[in-house]
Design a protein around this nucleic acid. Structure first.
Lengths: 259, 259
DNA sequence: CTTCGAAGTTGATATGAATCAATGCGAACA
DNA sequence: TGTTCGCATTGATTCATATCAACTTCGAAG
């Protein structure tokens, strides 16, 4: 239902549950919206239209402009989606991780490229079979619809960020969002707090790496985050971070050190 | 099908056709994805879950944060969707017109506000009935899905614009897109070429009104557009406009006057 | 252990767009 | 017919971020 909170649907996903042997080896069906037991026939059908796929860090698995034949559901790891301009300018439009779908926002050709920033495991579906999959498993269609709706909300939020927020506000918004994302994910991430580089951050936030670095320093000097020796970022004061992200605090709050 | 070109589905919409008396008076069902004849029962059902609605220019009909009870399909006119920040900064996330859906990108609360910039006629659906509507008319669900997919593509394009393009490139991108939009629409627009103000343009493109004005002047001086006395804009050289929008021309092309 | 290169930080300067300010212009209205 | 006001344009100046540049750190390869 559209009325569902997206988070509440996303939270219960547990990749270790409901693994169905033979279907996308090592990847369950629960995360694509199938929670009930499936018949042998269903399993056979699913296996015929989907394949497991693992891509290594740095590998591009979707190229903007290519014919959109596949459709992916991420099982593990993080990938970046981006668009490039002829002169090299790049905009990362999002980071996808476990449970997310990739390839929805496509015409007959992909409108974006996708590259793994960690090893990524996923299911690849044949797009020409998508209608058939929907017909057999309405739960998948519903899940996809909810995912798309949520993506639109996120995209609008990102437009506000890119169009109207300052560098520090952009960073704070991102860190706040990522913080929630990983804290909700059961598949809690490995050691490093942020899997993406400063360059990725810059391309996501519409900034340069230098400005990202400076904005991180600002937040660090305010005592809101800490930056580890390996450049990993930890949130120390999530409330103040959120206030800066939404420009919600009193105007003077922005320049108060430590408290 | 996802494989369909969105445009090709959109083009054949003709609001003067297939008007079904009793269903959203003055508004057909074709534009929400129903092309075949409907039974009396279908009509009765549709009438029970939808109502016609007309809002005047300047009127806000969706408020960010309000409970998302309704879902709209635009029949005529143009509205802007936007998000505001507490301090008054605003980002317009899109303009919607005939055939477009509003209210999809919503959780239990609307994530955006919507205001008519012309008189807007639309169908309002009850969101709690949406599943029922989908169940009875899969064509509507499919159409909505395709619309959402297309919106995601557009949103990603807009992120690239906001994050990485210059003021003139942003203007060119917008004018190019709008140009295509109105030329494809059968419901070809009234006299003025752009229904929105410079302030709307600025809030859509992440700029100020002064910068929008200067960018328009630049394009005018290049002979690519003309600006009428009533501030209406006409495209004179759509190819060069598109080149600037995509930063695709040779770098020198940007500074060539008239040709 | 040394070298090398990728990634990140910080400083100095340049620049595109924002801000501040003045003016023009047409539509609504007295 | 003039007044007023919203909208738009243009110019002068400021400012946030980009650009250019130097340096550090860390890990991998030799």
């Amino acid at each position: 239902m559209l009325d569902h909170r997206y988070r509440s649907q996303r939270a219960p996903i547990n990749l270790s549950e409901a693994i169905i042997p033979g279907l996308c080896a090592g990847c369950g069906a629960r995360h694509i919206g199938l929670c009930d037991a499936l018949s042998d026939e269903d399993l056979h059908f699913l296996a015929s239209v989907s394949r497991p796929l693992t891509v290594q860090k740095g590998q591009t698995f979707v190229v903007e402009g290519d014919a959109a034949r596949s459709f992916f559901n991420i099982n593990h790891g993080v990938a970046k989606l981006y668009k490039d301009m002829p002169d090299g300018r790049r905009q990362i439009t999002g980071f996808v991780s476990a449970g997310d779908f990739v390839g929805l926002a496509a015409d007959s050709c992909y409108a974006f490229s996708a590259e793994a920033i960690q090893e990524v495991r996923m299911c690849r579906f044949d797009r020409t079979e998508l209608r058939n999959v929907f017909g057999r498993f309405p739960a998948i269609e519903q899940r996809l619809f909810d995912f798309a709706s949520h993506e639109l909300v996120v995209a609008q939020e990102q437009m506000l960020l890119l169009g109207r927020k300052t560098a520090v506000e952009r960073l704070a918004s991102f860190l706040d969002g990522w913080h929630h994302r990983v804290s909700h994910a059961e598949d809690s991430n490995s050691g490093r707090s942020l899997p993406m580089t400063r360059a990725d951050l810059a391309d996501y936030l519409g900034l340069t790496i230098e400005t990202v670095s400076r904005a991180l320093s600002s937040l660090r000097k305010l005592g809101i985050i800490s930056v580890a020796a390996d450049h990993g970022v930890s949130v120390l004061q999530s409330t103040r971070l959120a206030e800066i992200a939404q420009a919600a605090g009193s105007s003077s709050a922005k320049i108060q050190p430590m408290a």
